[in-house]
Simulated assay, not measured.
Amino acid sequence: MGRWADVIDEGALLEALNSTPMVDGRPQDLWADDAVLRRWAREHGGPADTSALDWLRTTRDVLQTATRGPVPEAELQRILAGVSRLPEVGGSVLRWRLQAPPERLIAVELVLAWYDVRERRPGRLRPCGNDECRLFLLDRSRANTARWCSMKTCGNRLKARRHQERARQAPAS
């Protein structure tokens, strides 16, 4: 099966990476619910059968690991096994048709989106600077200085905590 590449954009990539948030101090997996993941897959043009959902969860986990540290090449090679892109010409336009097993097609597109972001925006896709947060951010700032998934939540929380620590350590006058 094949189709045009680039179906998964940066927003969809972040949704996938951020599908395992901390809620009230406990890790959650939003994709543990088949109905939620099936809806996400359909919204992004993918199949929603059990095998495709399993591949999506595996791919998400591999990409989270790769974004936090060393790229797990063996796992990525397993996801990308037997995949190819074929050029197709339509008038003056050249497009690349992605060919992959149907159950892995959307998972492969997720991997391709991840690599595309890393290439076009090097160093800008990263984990939140709050060690207690499991979310990721794509820094679109000019200076590439964003540290938190959200200034409103993680940024303010960490700044408040640092302020309290400084206040406790300050000598009483």
Rank of each mutant, 00 (worst) to 15 (best):
Val71Ser: 04
Glu75Cys: 04
Leu86His: 13
His44Pro: 08
Thr65Ser: 14
Gly91Met: 06
Gly69Asn: 01
Thr50Asn: 13
Ser84Thr: 06
Ala48Asp: 15
Thr65Trp: 09
His44Trp: 09
Leu63Trp: 09
Gly82Tyr: 13
Ser84Pro: 02
Arg68Asp: 15
Gly91Trp: 09
Val83Gly: 09
Glu88Met: 06
Pro72Asp: 10
Glu43Gln: 08
Thr67Ser: 15
Ala81Ile: 00
Glu88His: 09
Thr59Leu: 07
Gly69Phe: 07
Gly46Leu: 07
Glu43Cys: 01
Gly45Trp: 06
Gly82Leu: 06
Arg78Gln: 13
Thr59Cys: 07
Ala52Asn: 08
Arg68Gly: 14
Ser51Trp: 14
Glu73Trp: 14
Pro70His: 02
Pro47Tyr: 10
Gly45Leu: 03
Ala81Ser: 10
Val62Asp: 09
Ala81Asp: 11
Gly82Thr: 02
Val71Pro: 04
Ala81Trp: 11
Trp55Ala: 03
Gly82Gln: 09
Arg85Tyr: 09
Thr58Phe: 15
Arg60Trp: 11
Arg60Gly: 09
Leu63Ile: 03
Glu75Thr: 03
Val71Gln: 03
Gly69Trp: 05
Ser92Phe: 10
Pro87Val: 00
Val62Ser: 08
Glu88Trp: 05
Asp54Phe: 06
Asp49Gln: 13
Thr67Ala: 15
Val89Asp: 08
Gly45Pro: 10
Leu80Gln: 04
Pro72Gln: 06
Gln64Pro: 01
Gln77His: 14
Glu73Thr: 11
Glu43Arg: 01
Ser84Ile: 00
Leu63Ser: 03
Gly69Tyr: 04
Glu73Arg: 05
Gly90His: 11
Arg60Ile: 03
Ala52Pro: 09
Ala48Ile: 03
Thr58Asp: 12
Thr65Ala: 15
Trp55Glu: 07
Gly45Met: 03
Trp55Cys: 01
Gly91Val: 01
Gln77Trp: 14
